[in-house]
Simulated scan of single mutants.
Amino acid sequence: MEGITVQSPHARTAFACSALLLATLTACAGAAEADTRKPTAPEGVTAQAGSATSAHVMWERASDNEGITGYDVYREGKKAASVDAAKLMTDVDGLTASTAYTFTVRARDAAGNVSAPSTAVPVTTPAAAPADATPPTAPVELRGTAGGGGRTVTLSWGGSTDDVGVTSYDVYQEDSRIHSVAGTGTTARLTGLRPGTVYTFTVRARDASEKSSPDSNAIDLTTPSAPAAPASTAPTGLRTRTTAEGGEFAVDLSWDQPDTGGTIPAYQLFLNGKMTTTIVWGGNPPAGRATYRLTLPDPPGTRYSLKIRPKLPDGTWGDFSAQRTVVLRG
């Protein structure tokens, strides 16, 4: 029987055992790699009525061994909203006036694991607002302090007035709403910030008809650097002045340059969060306070937020300045 190999019973048994052991080890390895750990439940959940038909829900960041991918907000145990991991707040619309609701939040990860529900928080929507054509006045005297190991700031402001009533105050950082407090409060504590970073905050009041006030004054706060961290390379004292020139507008910028241990050859200018131009000096870079004129062809009333960052002597880009908001007016 040439060409045929016959295995003994012992050889067949050994082969079967080896195959079984390999399958077992492979299964165990796969089980070890699978992510079955649930994220922690979000803490610090708050809910407040934004109007007679909406509520604003906020929470603190949850943790996970692999990473959070999003959050789900539940109303009376039914999913009402979902957001990605970068967001820690959302508005829930479609509510009924003068009605009590309960909200919880769950975190989820990339493997589909969902945390336990957060502590349930109640909120009652107010009665439907009467006709209201007037927005609240702007909050005044916004001020604040940075602390908490470089990750926390505390803000306070003077209250607004409204012909019907202020229902909430919204805190903005670089034109994005990041926090809200009830209309009876005039302080906010913000967490989860980065050490050694300059932040620009404003506050707006909102009434029951969802009309928002003009911005408060802007305030720049720099969080303390982490121990042994390098000094900030952010430009400071950024100021703007807008003038009309024919059919265009000129925005004159000036700022104090950071001490980087060498010459700063260029700056990047960002408008509304997008890099717009690189400022390169025609001759030798200026010393001390720098200036630049930006020309914009947009119509009157156009609003821009702008900030700059320096090119460091080692060729990398440094920290951002505080943000400034300009409205094109003659």
Rank of each mutant, 00 (worst) to 15 (best):
P313C: 15
P122L: 02
G165K: 07
L190D: 04
R329A: 14
L22E: 03
K79G: 07
T200G: 02
R194I: 11
T167L: 14
T277D: 12
D91P: 00
A32W: 08
G77C: 04
S118V: 09
D252E: 15
A86D: 15
Y199P: 01
S54W: 01
A131M: 10
R204P: 00
G196E: 08
Y71A: 08
V166R: 05
K311A: 11
A27V: 05
D256N: 14
E60V: 01
A23S: 11
L193Y: 02
P214L: 07
L328W: 08
H56W: 14
G288P: 10
K78P: 00
P117R: 06
V73S: 06
T200A: 01
T243L: 11
A49H: 02
A250W: 04
T233F: 09
K87F: 07
T316R: 15
R194V: 14
N65L: 11
R303H: 06
V327Y: 05
P258S: 13
D132V: 09
D207G: 02
S18L: 15
H179A: 13
W317M: 15
G165N: 07
G330Y: 03
G30A: 12
G262Y: 10
Q48Y: 00
D109P: 06
E43T: 15
A23I: 05
P235C: 10
A266I: 08
P230N: 05
T137R: 03
L25N: 00
G112N: 07
A23H: 01
G150S: 09
A138I: 06
